[in-house]
Write a protein that binds this DNA or RNA. Structure first.
Lengths: 160, 160
DNA sequence: TCGCCTCTTGAGACAAAATCTCAACAAACG
DNA sequence: CGTTTGTTGAGATTTTGTCTCAAGAGGCGA
């Protein structure tokens, strides 16, 4: 049950260190996002909390999700065409995303090689790599097959 | 003036091959996006066309931008927190983006190394790399400095 | 513990971005 | 040239997220 003790401690330190208040809503939101697996959007998070009879408003969810992102306990990303998705972050955890532009499927991956090159590129352009994010978009095998099939008789592009 | 002749030919082939009609609006939109440099959103594109006294509606701009993306002549990406940005694509051209999450600045870069690893990762997960996109988010030097300064006296995190 | 100060919250208005509706229009084709 | 059917335009609608401001509550000193 205390699986997120370190993260919660980090959250409390962050709040106090910044002069922010430790409210019931903030703690409830923390618990909720750390009980969720994978990516979830603000609206779903709100619904999940309402379903548990927790009283919290949409505005508060949005505001405090940004707070969690600021202190590094959550990531906020555009993985699909719709809005932002959030996911909680554990100590030392780091992965990036492969997103299918066809069906929206998200695959997590870890690539030390890319991480290293990414660091080089950031440095070369004067970027700081804190809280960086790397995202690759493409078509998953199913969507690639689906999009190729209906155009099977399409003329071969002679250019390139 | 015929600088985009190959691309326009590709567009016409795409339209005819799919049974789509070659309309004045589609050609005008093609000309507009290929006359623009860098990233531009649908609304700006619409405004630019209106400014040239071209008659076209918002819905048509959105619909046909998607068409251009489908045939590979444009890229549609979320580079900022707001909506989508579009850019035209030339034959063989390929670059990726480094986006500052602080100020929204976008830097284009080319990294053969990352491209290769990206290909490997896609293959490993059954993704097809056509029309792929790679995006790195971070903080540019200015934003990093700005965000570090006000918190200079912040306690050192003892974890990790 | 009490009370004050100020930050935070909630409900709904508001704003921004993109899609949808459907009648009028026009490209393609014979 | 006329028919067929994909396309367009204007505005309503949906979606996603932010803003407003009065009411509520955390934190701190006494």
């Amino acid at each position: 049950m205390m699986a997120n003790a370190r993260e919660k401690e980090q959250f409390l330190q962050y709040l106090r260190g910044r002069g922010h208040r430790v409210t019931g809503e903030r703690l409830a939101l923390f618990d909720e996002i750390f009980s969720q697996h994978g990516h979830i959007d603000a609206e779903e998070l709100l619904a999940a909390m309402k379903a548990r009879s927790l009283k919290i408003s949409r505005a508060t969810v949005y505001r405090n999700l940004d707070l969690l992102v600021e202190c590094g306990l959550a990531r906020k990303q555009r993985l699909g065409s719709r809005g932002f998705l959030y996911e909680h972050v554990h100590f030392g955890q780091q992965h990036d995303h492969l997103v299918c532009t066809g069906c929206g499927r998200v695959v997590e991956f870890v690539s030390p090689g890319i991480a290293a090159l990414q660091g080089e590129i950031c440095r070369a352009h004067g970027f700081v790599t804190t809280r960086h994010t790397l995202q690759i978009s493409g078509l998953c095998n199913l969507c690639a097959a689906a999009s190729a099939a209906p155009q099977a008789r399409r003329e071969v592009q002679t250019h390139v």
